[in-house]
Design a protein around this nucleic acid. Structure first.
Lengths: 232, 232, 232, 232
DNA sequence: AATGAATGAGTCTTCATTCAT
DNA sequence: TATGAATGAAGACTCATTCAT
């Protein structure tokens, strides 16, 4: 009974993910979502107040799964802090590829935050978003992945894989920034790949090495850390 | 006289920038653009085939100005390569803030490139975009800012401010990635600022230092480069 | 209850007929149709995919009623084949006059068929028409009136009112052609009526006689007939 | 000088014919016509008051050429009246095929006449049409082809190829009606051709024979038919 | 919980026509 | 005569959302 309801909610969310992936948020009509979920249009509005609310619910789920990704990287046995962070370089773009809509919703939420935190732009946000219960929940939990990331840096400092003078928060957010930008630049890179000098497969190890150099401090050639089989 | 014609095009573009900034692309109606530009709706379509075409024209202009930003950073007298790159950390977010729509259009174009370069997703792009003359032009010029960035790294290597073993393309794109992510993370950061540990004003110098460490290779505390008055 | 749904469709169709009659197809806006039908614009599109689809639905209904006309002429008690065919000469123009839009839609469909059956011109047809379910149905049923007409000729041959050597299909289509042209020429005829020699009221019996001569085979001048008070 | 102007007019008209043939009247924009004619949009309006005026000019030319067709059929050496009329059965559909737009414009004009001659429907005609000089001219000349046709019947009576008791006007208009319908029915016929019994190539001779039988009179006297209370 | 018919605001886009030059 | 930039009225169509059942 109680689970019944939850079931429908999930059905709708899954349908939305599938359709947003294929056609995008704007091009997807609520009717499509309902049809794909095998229910009526009206019922969709019973579970989600409106399209924005549905999208916020989706974003919430995205953050949950995203957090899992961080958690797994953190829990991995036998890895030091630096390796955990390096792991994210692989995990996050992989997550982005396999969960395109989730990842996009996360980035969208970051943009939302920028507007939200600036009094002058806050009213540019669609009111329906602000009203969404899921949005409110997101305000509380959206930094959780980062919290784990910060713990990775702290761990790295403790185990000596990361320079001790680095400040964990600042360092982690910088790492995350790098990765976000890295994922975003993959598109144009692929295109310019014709010019050979840089392409997704040679950038990855180079990027890894730079990241590690940054975190560990270098001069001398140190053996780069190998993550998931990629060599520098 | 001669510039009179071109003037109308510019008028429209300026109106679009202004309105997109305030209301966003979707919420802005072509009629609003026309009114703001002080011309008739029809004339808007005389100069720009459709809304997407107008947006691509805007994006083109955005890249032009963005390139200027890179050019200025590169031409700056008395700066070594590392300082130029560090300069971008300030310039790009500043550009993003002052030219919100332009910057957004650039990021949007990067997303477009990702879809465009993947045969499976290319058809998710609005055909009107692909048809736009300005889009075609963008395909040719969108990597120009990066070209200058690569030159900065090369310069840094030459002048000794950047580690000689670094490969310029890979290094620059990594730097650019960092900055893109950095700008994007500002939003959430600001919010978590309440928790004090990280906020825009302490992140900036920290970010700068990490970037410089990465590029220059360090262990020892080297005096960080000062850019535009910000200290670490 | 059950008819309630169908009712709306009919409401829309009736409104369309009324407006197309008064203002013509092009000049009639879907919004007008909705208003006249007493429903919302959106609902119109719920029942009919688009304006063309609505028009095809109307054409379908026109053919149905047109067929009824043939059926009635065929079923008439105590009439031989020739009389049935002669009856059409009166019925069809009357149908055209009383159901202007229906008749026009039928002629329009014939024009459509010409384009449709010629591979070189088929693509000149509005795609929305080809997509219409009602168009597809029309492809199947549009020859049904003619089938009845052919039966009339066969009947005429059987009952001796039509020359036995005539081939039914060819003969009927020739008769139909005559009537179509006859109806079409009424306009100019009326105008030239000032010159007295030919006008709608003296043409009708003359036309009838020629038709009958053609079908029955004649020689000598038979006493001319009086039809609707007009003299031959 | 004087011819110069006429030249441009012809250029425009030719462009219009070409475009109307390919895209139809509605789908053809005045700009297309101008471009195809190699002149500016504005000049088009110098020579033709508006789109309707242009179409009426085209219709006028259509009637002129159509009349030539009749004239040639009439002047043909060694043909009797019946043969001339039979000739039209070939000439008119051929004209329709080779001069699609001209023929369509002629039929369109006939429809216009029907509305024009009925006080209740006259105001359904686009005022721009009524204002056109070419429309006024058409009112005067549109019956000229028929005049020649009537002469053919008279000639047929004189040379004995047509039954002497026939009234020329009525007879010719009936013939013309047949041909108009015949041309119109070609479309659907072609389609039903799959059912073999009737198709364009077996209809033509059958149609010709029926026409000739009608005009020339055949075989035995049969009992006249009664239609709707009218006695023959 | 569930349905789906019904609503109507919202917008892009087209094009005949004009007019300053 | 000739141009083409400029106008603006006109209309089809979409879709998020509601609500009677």
């Amino acid at each position: 009974m109680a689970g019944e309801k939850t079931n429908k909610e999930k059905l709708i969310l899954d349908a939305a993910v599938s359709l947003f992936t294929t056609k995008g948020f704007t091009a997807t009509r609520m009717e499509d979502v309902a049809r794909k979920a095998g229910i009526s249009k009206g019922l969709t509005y019973f579970y989600y107040k409106n399209k924005e609310d549905l999208f916020m619910a989706l974003t919430k789920k995205a953050f949950d799964q995203f957090k899992d990704e961080f958690r797994e990287a953190y829990r991995a046995k036998g890895k030091n802090g630096l390796e955990m962070l390096s792991d994210l370089v692989v995990r996050i773009p992989a997550f982005a590829k396999q969960n395109q809509v989730y990842y996009d919703s996360i980035l969208n939420f970051l943009d939302l935050m920028k507007k939200y935190n600036n009094p002058e732009t806050r009213d540019q946000i669609n009111p329906l978003i602000l009203e969404s219960v899921h949005f409110q929940k997101l305000l509380e939990i959206h930094h959780e992945p980062a919290k784990i990331g910060v713990m990775m840096v702290s761990q790295g400092i403790k185990d000596g894989s990361v320079r001790p003078e680095l400040q964990p928060e600042i360092t982690f957010y910088t790492v995350w920034s790098m990765i976000i930008g890295y994922e975003k630049m993959m598109g144009p890179i692929e295109y310019e790949g014709k010019e050979i000098k840089i392409n997704p497969s040679n950038w990855q190890p180079g990027f890894q090495k730079l990241l590690q150099d940054m975190l560990r401090g270098t001069i001398q050639a140190v053996k780069p850390v190998t993550v998931q089989g990629s060599l520098f």
